[in-house]
Deep mutational scan, measured.
Amino acid sequence: MQRVNMIMAESPGLITICLLGYLLSAECTVFLDHENANKILNRPKRYNSGKLEEFVQGNLERECMEEKCSFEEAREVFENTERTTEFWKQYVDGDQCESNPCLNGGSCKDDINSYECWCPFGFEGKNCELDVTCNIKNGRCEQFCKNSADNKVVCSCTEGYRLAENQKSCEPAVPFPCGRVSVSQTSKLTRAETVFPDVDYVNSTEAETILDNITQSTQSFNDFTRVVGGEDAKPGQFPWQVVLNGKVDAFCGGSIVNEKWIVTAAHCVETGVKITVVAGEHNIEETEHTEQKRNVIRIIPHHNYNAAINKYNHDIALLELDEPLVLNSYVTPICIADKEYTNIFLKFGSGYVSGWGRVFHKGRSALVLQYLRVPLVDRATCLRSTKFTIYNNMFCAGFHEGGRDSCQGDSGGPHVTEVEGTSFLTGIISWGEECAMKGKYGIYTKVSRYVNWIKEKTKLT
């Protein structure tokens, strides 16, 4: 034993070699072989497995989906700052455009905790909710729209109204504003409101030439003092309507412009014939205590009207009353817009006519005020429907199939267009061939041609 100890002390290297040989010859039971080890760690190889990531292109799944990435790591994937920024906006807080917040056709661009709407022409605001041009839906104005110097929408209202708090709607500024039905039992019968379409306001006024200088022999019209197929109006439903009495009662109609003036057809009036105007009328054979009678003290036909040349060209006249009318729910003026808007309103496509005229061709006159909704007829169809001249200051309205029309005794009465609950004068009943005849239409004086003249002559002093 002493000898062994001496050998170990003198030859430590020998001992180490012996131990190493023993270990190498022993069977290893701690580690699995290569094949079995792979069965336990069965993990798919990654895209760049075996390579240094710093030297390969980034992978979106590896960089940002398996674990949260930084902007720089995302930049490695896209290799483009702009594309990385677009991805980053949604990656950080989701897609803010998912709810489609942009209105009126706006395009949404996502941002971090926010979004941006790219608005089409005519709109602005956070969600493109603000109209900035009158060309689109009248700028959301209830009545009139004008573009300011910086191309912003400025709404306005006709006389007797003021802008509401929203700067879009119009509200009454006087007790009985024009064009409004205020009798409670008839307010439910107000005709369907007309909503502004998209309009090209630059070209809204037709490029028409008034044929002022045409000389033409007097034409022989049949029954051209021209509501057939209409309905009984309720008291106060058309408070701007008046009836004219002269040699015979209810020979023509008219509309209240203001307390002192009536507008009617020029062919209705004769110099030297006494005319009485009755406002607030409903049943011409009954006294309903809503009527107001006034005498006409002055007749002003349009300066281009000449019955000797043509009885229905420039067929418009103004009547001055001896005493002002007292405005109330049964006696209310009709609204008159400017030339541009009167023309736009007419193009809405349908209007209402009213009167006490004959209820059928050569038949009896109506006792109760009649009204009828009539569609506008395109000019080409209008011209083809008659052998008589249709001037540019006239328009056609009615039904091709016949059966409904204005008729004798309705002449001078109103053709009105309702705009968001307020009625505007767009025409004056003038003439036609018979009444409600198939293929024939009622012919009306186009008020847009005469609004400046009306307003100039009827100013209240």
Rank of each mutant, 00 (worst) to 15 (best):
K362H: 12
K68G: 05
E129G: 11
H415C: 02
V419R: 13
N59I: 03
L376R: 10
D95V: 09
A173H: 05
L346M: 06
P414M: 14
F399Y: 08
E285L: 10
P44W: 06
C128W: 02
N104R: 08
N36W: 07
A266N: 02
G105F: 10
I336M: 08
C145D: 01
N295F: 06
D150M: 07
V77G: 15
S99G: 08
L321R: 00
K45V: 09
T342K: 01
Q185I: 10
V368K: 14
P175K: 09
G246A: 09
Q408M: 14
L346N: 05
L372E: 12
K459S: 12
E288K: 10
N127T: 09
L244H: 02
L372Q: 14
V353F: 04
W261R: 01
A397W: 02
E270C: 05
P239G: 02
L20Y: 02
G403A: 12
A173Y: 09
C407W: 14
L325S: 00
K188S: 09
N113G: 06
L367E: 14
E434Q: 05
Q143L: 00
G355L: 06
V181C: 06
A265I: 00
H415Q: 00
D150N: 08
I17M: 13
I275R: 00
Y22L: 04
G160Y: 02
T271Y: 05
A380N: 07
S114G: 14
H302C: 02
R140Y: 05
L244W: 01
F78T: 02
D232E: 08
F348R: 12
A250R: 06
S184I: 13
N80R: 14
D315R: 00
E420S: 15
T16E: 02
G125W: 02
E231Y: 04
S406R: 14
P375M: 13
R191F: 07
K188P: 14
S107D: 07
D249Y: 04
K274V: 07
Q370N: 08
E82K: 14
P177V: 03
V257M: 02
Q219M: 09
P197L: 13
S448M: 02
T158L: 06
G349W: 08
I297M: 07
L372R: 09
F31Y: 15
E456D: 13
R3H: 05
M6G: 11
N245G: 06
E129V: 06
G409D: 13
G357L: 11
D150V: 07
C18W: 04
T133C: 06
K311H: 05
N42Q: 09
L24Y: 06
N48P: 12
E116S: 14
L189W: 08
G412C: 07
A308W: 04
E54Y: 04
C145I: 01
C108T: 01
V174T: 07
V416A: 06
K137S: 08
Y305M: 02
L325H: 00
N104G: 09
R404K: 00
E142P: 02
I316A: 01
S169V: 07
C396Q: 02
L103R: 10
N245M: 05
G125H: 04
T386H: 14
P333E: 02
V174R: 09
N306Y: 04
V181D: 06
I299K: 09
S350E: 08
F78Q: 15
H415P: 02
T342G: 07
F238L: 05
K247Q: 11
G230A: 11
Q143M: 06
R162E: 09
I309E: 12
L103E: 12
S220V: 10
V278F: 05
P175L: 10
E73N: 13
F360R: 15
D410L: 06
P324N: 04
I297T: 07
D249L: 07
L369Q: 06
N38C: 08
R75E: 15
C119S: 03
Y341N: 15
V277N: 00
E433I: 04
I7A: 13
S354P: 10
V331N: 01
G409F: 14
V257L: 05
A266S: 03
C382P: 02
Q216W: 12
T271K: 11
R3D: 04
T290S: 08
I214M: 05
S217D: 09
S411N: 12
